[in-house]
Design a protein around this nucleic acid. Structure first.
Lengths: 193, 193
DNA sequence: CGCGCGATTGAGTAATTTCAAATCTAGTGG
DNA sequence: CCACTAGATTTGAAATTACTCAATCGCGCG
């Protein structure tokens, strides 16, 4: 299909930003991925279920969150075009998910199983460097978020969120942003900034 | 030196837990590292200074922390034997450190520059998979910590810390644990558990 | 029009911080 | 062996921040 072909070229560009792949190599890589569509409110991953694949989002918007014993949701990540998202604990250790990931908008993704991913590394070892850079970047981002949680109050965290993700600030209801920031929606509402 | 040789075998074991290396490969890898000793209170990394290397701790104990505008310290990580520690933002992007890392005890480390690390990946591409697994593990650990900060109160966080790091709980003054947990030392002191 | 969702506002409550002072402990030098 | 000091811990009391529960508002859409 033409449309899928375009999607694939987006994925290829995503790799190309970090690693040079020949056409032959790309053929190998692209075969490892499958393309899927989800509609708003559908789950990519559900708590308690296996985590079959990692996801790269072509288009759309999802939230990854943990639901605690009291039924309260804590959002770990929003993910939109060009982001990777998964329950990585479940994925890498092949254990049931502790997180839910569901669609806030209709979402198109590329999926890859852990098995195929490992096989890719055997065939194209340099590919591990691509994922390594992604992982390192994610680690640094999470460190920053921890520091923000330790150091900044609700208002500062919200302002930083708006600066860092101006587009998501528009696209998301404040209730969800509150859940990401670790603040009640009422408190967020009272911040005048 | 005999002593350094022993240290090196510890580093080799650390790699061997994840990736099989031939003697020839190990020779290449070990050459990329330098061995260093630091005394209690010395800095591995200082805010504002370049980040020359990543560190693997053979023995000792360090804290990695951010100092905010008010001079308050927030501890991002403790690291002891067998842990990697660095200001990864500074290291990977080759920009000045925003963190301080200093020794709580005399500490022995192996160091590797980013340049030598990259060269290793050229020579032994599978090595990237070693660091990838480490990075993924770190990412998952930080996610867990974020969830704990979002979901749990001071007492719960402290109890989890004690469970997760029973040895560090003994070895560290409570003031530092408080700074890691994001709680004032007075509050931590009032938790009876 | 009226429903449903998100956002806001008010009031009381709970958790934690801040500032200050007291206590405890381990190590040092006389 | 003792006095002394620095660091760590604890305790008290007031202030602050954010939470919870409840009610209200605003708006888009069938």
């Amino acid at each position: 299909m033409v449309i899928i072909h375009d999607m694939e070229s987006l994925l290829r560009q995503h790799f190309a930003e970090i690693i040079a792949l020949t056409d032959a190599q790309w053929a190998v890589v692209s075969q490892a991925f499958t393309y899927k569509k989800y509609r708003k409110h559908q789950f990519l991953i559900q708590e308690g279920a296996p985590v079959p694949t990692d996801f790269w989002i072509v288009q759309g918007l999802v939230k990854s969150y943990y639901t605690n014993a009291d039924g309260k949701e804590h959002i770990l990540q929003f993910a939109t075009s060009d982001w990777w998202v998964c329950d990585y604990n479940g994925y890498f250790k092949q254990v049931p998910a502790k997180l839910n990931i569901d669609c806030l908008e209709d979402t198109h993704v590329f999926c890859i199983t852990l098995e195929k991913r490992e096989k890719l590394f055997e065939q194209i070892p340099e590919l591990a460097q691509f994922f390594l850079k992604k992982s390192n970047g994610g680690y640094i981002a999470l460190q920053r978020r921890i520091l923000s949680l330790l150091n900044d109050n609700a208002k500062e965290r919200y302002e930083q969120f708006q600066e860092l993700y101006p587009e998501l600030s528009q696209r998301l209801p404040k209730t969800l942003i509150a859940s990401y920031l670790g603040v009640s929606r009422e408190t967020l509402s009272r911040l005048d900034s």
